[in-house]
Computed example of a mutant assay.
Amino acid sequence: MEKEYLKSTTQNYSKSGIDTIRIIYKYKSDLDIEVIKALGGVIDKYTYFPNREEVALVIKASECINGGIELTNLNDTLEIVKGLELELSISLGKLTRVDFSFDTLEKLEENKRKYRLFLECLDLKRRSGGVYETKKPIKEERRTGNLKTATKRQQTTVYNCEDKPRYAKIRLENRVEDIRLNESVEQVIKIELKKYIKELHKLEELVPMVEDFYINYLVEEYRRTIKKEFRTFTEFITWADKEQLILTERILKEVLKASKITTRFQVFVREFRRTRKESLKFTNKTEIKKILLIVKKELKKIT
């Protein structure tokens, strides 16, 4: 669908909200799982009976409110939950998953380095397993996939939404699972949201450490592959740039220095770009700080 709404928005459009939640209820009466899955707002493929006395409802409130085009705030989400509880005669559910998301009109293909650096900083703070990228099938015109980092309890993903019926082109989603708090659904959402916002505080200060990791990796790769897989330093940088491994100017400067090539940094970049117009698009700590300020401001609007 052509998004008429976008004609009245600016490129700074952004919105945060709750994407999906999972609530486990105890019940006494017989519930038909197929009837439950057919209810508005319930995601049928994830809703299930954990055992004979519990049902896990996975709910996407935005499906009821705006057809899934935009995210929903806490109050709207809770209203949909209350409606489902009345329909099924269940109550006092336990929240075990919540997805907090941030939407923007930025395109992932043009901003991949920035969001990769953002996730790398978050991954470093969480001491998780690293950032990786999913790829779309070759037959698809736009092959830009999603960027992810995950721990056992949290998964943060930068989704490419250009092929989805949404206003957003990028969705930054933080999924929290295995929640064991015994507070009400509303209170648990507020607690988990506060934790996430706190986790983002001063995250940009980890940028130099992420750069160090990329520098060390690229220097080792250069020494391992030069004259074997790559004939020249320029060929190596062409590969590294295509793989989105040169996130910042500092990374390239240090790799250039380690290569013993005598060309000055600015000269190398100018000559490299002369025949590769769309190459070496750097991000930096300032850009990460800016996106963090925007994301935290928008997340606070959820409640």
Score class of each variant (00 low, 15 high):
Glu2Gln: 11
Thr10Asp: 15
Asn12Ile: 07
Arg22Cys: 14
Arg22His: 01
Ile23Gln: 09
Lys28His: 12
Asp30Leu: 04
Leu31Asn: 09
Leu31Ser: 10
Asp32Gln: 08
Val35Tyr: 11
Val35Asn: 04
Ile36Met: 02
Gly41Trp: 04
Val42Ser: 03
Ile43Gln: 11
Asp44Gly: 01
Tyr46Ala: 03
Phe49Arg: 05
Asn51Arg: 05
Leu57Trp: 00
Leu57Glu: 04
Leu57Ala: 04
Lys60Met: 05
Glu63Ile: 00
Gly67Cys: 03
Ile69Asn: 04
Glu70Cys: 00
Leu71Cys: 05
Asn73Glu: 11
Asn73Met: 10
Asp76His: 08
Leu78Asn: 03
Gly83Met: 00
Glu85Thr: 08
Glu87Trp: 01
Leu88Pro: 08
Gly93Phe: 12
Lys94Ser: 13
Arg97Val: 01
Arg97Leu: 09
Phe102Leu: 06
Glu106His: 12
Glu110Phe: 03
Lys112Leu: 14
Tyr115Asn: 09
Leu119Met: 10
Glu120His: 04
Asp123Pro: 07
Leu124Arg: 12
Gly129Met: 04
Val131Asn: 12
Glu133Met: 12
Glu133Gln: 15
Lys135Val: 01
Lys135Leu: 07
Arg142Tyr: 09
Leu147Tyr: 09
Lys148Arg: 13
Lys148Gln: 07
Ala150Glu: 13
Arg153Met: 01
Gln155Ile: 05
Thr157Asp: 02
Val158His: 03
Cys161Tyr: 12
Glu162Ile: 08
Pro165Lys: 12
Ile170Leu: 12
Arg171Ser: 08
Leu172Thr: 08
Glu173Phe: 02
Glu173Tyr: 02
Asp178His: 14
Asn182Phe: 05
Val185Trp: 07
Val185Gln: 07
Ile191Glu: 15
Leu193Ile: 06
Leu193Glu: 08
Leu193Cys: 12
Lys194Tyr: 01
Ile197Asp: 09
His201Asp: 10
Lys202Thr: 03
Lys202Met: 07
Lys202Arg: 11
Glu205Gln: 09
Glu205Met: 06
Glu211Ile: 07
Glu211Tyr: 07
Asn216Ala: 12
Asn216Thr: 05
Asn216Ser: 11
Leu218Glu: 11
Val219His: 07
Glu220Ser: 13
Glu221Asp: 11
Thr225Glu: 02
Phe230Pro: 12
Thr232Asp: 13
Thr232Met: 03
Thr234Ala: 15
Phe236Leu: 06
Phe236Ser: 10
Ala240Tyr: 14
Lys242Tyr: 15
Gln244Glu: 15
Leu245His: 10
Ile246Tyr: 06
Leu247Asn: 11
Thr248Glu: 09
Leu256Arg: 08
Ala258Trp: 13
Ser259Gly: 14
Gln266Phe: 01
Arg270Cys: 00
Arg270Asp: 12
Arg270Phe: 02
Thr275Val: 02
Arg276Leu: 01
Lys277Ser: 02
Lys277Met: 01
Lys277Gln: 04
Leu280Ala: 07
Lys281Gln: 01
Thr283Ser: 14
Lys290Glu: 13
Ile294Lys: 15
Val295Trp: 02
Lys300Gly: 01
Lys301Asn: 05
Thr303Asp: 10
